[in-house]
Design a protein around this nucleic acid. Structure first.
Lengths: 93, 93
DNA sequence: CTTTTTGGTTTACATTATAAACTCATTTAT
DNA sequence: ATAAATGAGTTTATAATGTAAACCAAAAAG
C-alpha cells in the first residue's frame, strides 16, 4: 500500500532540481538557482547529495572567465525519479 | 512553477496517515499503526503534530477497558491534503 | 502474585535542511 | 594602482525533523 519514498528525492528542493533536470538536457547552477528559488548554499549542498548518489552528473567548467557548474540527470537518476513518482501515487490517489 | 510543499504533509508517515484518513470516516491508532508500519512512538508523535495543526481530530476513549485512540481528518486537513497534492503535481508531471 | 501484553507517551539521539559566513577570481569604480 | 563590489560557488554552524528506544499504566495470562 505505502511504498517507501526514496528519502533523497523526498525533499522539496532536491525534487525540484530533479524535476527540472528531467525535462532538459542540462542546466547551469545559476539557472537552477533561479527556477527553484533556492539559496546558493542550499543548492550547492543538495546538488552534491544528488551527485554523490549518482542521480545527476555535475561538470565544472568556464564560460569565458567565469566558472560554470553544469548539471544533468543520469540514467540512474531518471529511474529513481520514476520509481519515486510511482511510489508517491500510492499516497495521493 | 514549484509551489511550496506544506512541510507538515511532506513527510512519509504523516502523508500516509492523511492518505488513510481521507478515505475513511475514522480510524483507530492500532489500525493506522498496522497499515503504515510505523512504530507506536513515531505514530504518536506524528498524530500529535497533525492534530496540533488541526488537520485531524483525535479522540481518546475506552473500548471496554482498553484505551482507544480514534482519529479522523478535519475539513482543514482535507483542504491541506488537496492543496499539497496539487502543488506536488507541479513537480512530478 | 508476577510476568506479559496492549495501547500508548516521553525523551533522547541521529539525521536533515538551511542560512550565514567564507573563498576566490573578476569586474568596476576611485 | 587600489579598493570596493560582484559572481559563482563551498564550508560550516545551527535550527528543525524524524525516529527509535525507554518508559508508563492497566489488563490479561500463567
Amino acid at each position: 500500500m505505502f511504498k517507501d519514498l526514496d528519502p533523497l528525492l523526498h525533499s522539496q528542493l532536491r525534487l525540484a532540481i530533479m524535476s527540472l533536470l528531467i525535462g532538459v538536457d542540462s542546466a547551469e547552477f545559476v539557472f537552477i538557482k533561479e527556477k527553484t528559488g533556492a539559496t546558493a548554499g542550499n543548492l550547492s549542498v543538495q546538488l552534491d547529495k544528488l551527485s554523490t548518489a549518482g542521480y545527476i552528473s555535475v561538470i565544472k567548467s568556464f564560460k569565458g572567465k567565469k566558472p560554470v557548474t553544469t548539471c544533468s540527470i543520469t540514467k540512474i537518476g531518471i529511474k529513481a525519479f520514476e520509481d519515486y513518482v510511482n511510489s508517491l501515487k500510492g499516497y495521493i490517489e
